[in-house]
Design a binder for these strands. Structure first.
Lengths: 114, 114
DNA sequence: CGCATAGTTAACTAAGTCGTTAACTATGTA
DNA sequence: TACATAGTTAACGACTTAGTTAACTATGCG
């Protein structure tokens, strides 16, 4: 039930893969182009791309010798939602805490240390 | 420069660790309590907690024999921002695409296949 | 054909992850 | 002291990850 989040988060856990995703925001690119910024062999990039593809974060269209890669926008949604949820929970809690502290201050004007 | 995102995302990549984070939204809990829901040994949970702690996602206070664990709210921010940024980029692009398609439809009323 | 380009697959190494059980430390309690 | 509870550390095995180089497939071009 959680496999999608597993693969998405672990795909995002590698800096080269995040960089590739960022790179692809500028538009489609083929494998060699994507490989250029890194001091990394082509096979290494090839497998990073396969990981991203496996996570559904990118897709490719083979055109002759060229593999044109592009972002798949929806793929990051589940992970984004999870984190947003986690954070929203906390802002909610902190709001409650703020209210609580506020109330404390109002109730006993003064000396509450620590 | 990217190490924080690396550790955060890979900490989130394991279902047990995400579950622990979710569990901790209900409040602080000690290690044995956190271990209960999983068919997993205590040492296994102990290391999951260490991973979460290493990523800064949780913190603990040792009180006698009990290690009381709690969420650290700010820790998920960088990762959340990265994903939100990634997604915002795409909604922007899709808006542009919608506009573009809209314009195409207006310009040549009909038959654009593929 | 012969050769270059784009990219993948294979084989290997080094290191990391994730689980186990067994043994340990530390605290509380009779 | 002796014993139970809370939790960590150590040692191990199975598996995965991330990189390398070498060899391969497939396309394009003279």
């Amino acid at each position: 039930m959680y496999e999608q989040l597993d693969t998405t988060f672990s795909a995002l856990a590698h800096p080269a893969r995040r960089a590739i995703l960022t790179q692809l925001r500028a538009g489609e690119a083929n494998v060699t182009t994507l490989a250029e910024p890194y001091g990394m062999s082509l096979p290494a990039i090839s497998r990073h791309l396969k990981v991203l593809e496996g996570a559904g974060l990118i897709a490719r269209t083979v055109n002759g010798r060229f593999h044109r890669c592009r972002l798949v926008p929806e793929a990051a949604n589940e992970a984004g939602d999870w984190l947003q949820n986690h954070r929203r929970f906390w802002t909610d809690r902190l709001d409650s805490l703020a209210d609580y502290v506020d109330k404390l201050n109002k109730d006993s004007q003064g000396d509450n240390d620590e």
